[in-house]
Design a protein around this nucleic acid. Structure first.
Lengths: 127, 127
DNA sequence: TCAAAAACAGTAATCATTCCTGTTTTCTGT
DNA sequence: ACAGAAAACAGGAATGATTACTGTTTTTGA
């Protein structure tokens, strides 16, 4: 079965994703790790991210500048994406329950929700 | 300047996007129109969709199965995406104001928000 | 230690999207 | 209506993120 053997590269990839608030892309993880693990391959990063998603250990946040950005914080929270610096920021305490209730009544089964605000972050606003 | 000349193809592309609730992809629009306009090119569809986005006449909803899905209804509303049939459905009356207020206080400038629920639609649930 | 399963590197393939070049259409002023 | 100039376009090539493939290495469990 897939994803059941130990793999130090898989560990390193997950640790990298989980220990940053950058909401990284596959390439970001690869670039971050390639000094530490010179024989790491980008395909391995993609393969493991796909596995983590299947396992529910990471979620996809959004596609920013053509790259998928992921999050190892799978708790229910929203995101803000800055259209200037491409930064992705966490936003907690979303208030979506009225809408969710309505969906439930309509027979829709919600697996996950994705709330994304697009705009200019406070740092970029100053420049 | 761009987007200021009349173009019957551009008109047809916009009309196609605006007259469906399918939240179409570029290829969907192209396939829908190619019988009516045999010399239409896919690049023209992409180019015009990019123009409509710049003009605020369409918005990007989400990437579904690797294809960007757009909406000519630019009013503030959320979407539900079925992970089985890839259908995109409108959801009105989202209740996000508490979160928006907080963002505003933090100096973030919101250009647009994108609220997407992922799950299984009622039709697919029955099968 | 050994064979099967899993994971991997490295590279090729895929596919949505964008770019480029030469042609056609639209616009504007005469 | 006519003649540039600007815009829009077709068709195909290029790009770039992601995925698939193949042969090799690592892990596992007996």
């Amino acid at each position: 079965m897939k994803g059941h053997n130990f793999s130090s590269k898989r560990e390193a990839i997950f640790k990298t994703i989980a220990s940053t608030k950058a909401h990284p892309s596959a390439r970001w993880v690869y670039d971050r790790l390639k000094d530490e693990i010179p024989d790491l391959s980008l395909g391995t990063v993609y393969r493991n991210i796909a596995l983590f998603k299947e396992q529910g250990k990471v979620v996809s946040v959004a596609s920013v500048d053509g790259e998928e950005r992921i999050d190892a914080d799978v708790s229910d929270h929203a995101h803000f994406i800055c259209e200037k610096c491409s930064g992705v920021f966490d936003l907690h305490q979303s208030e979506l329950s009225p809408l969710e209730k309505e969906l439930f009544k309509s027979g829709f089964e919600i697996n996950r929700k994705n709330v994304v605000f697009y705009g200019i972050c406070s740092k970029c606003s100053k420049n």
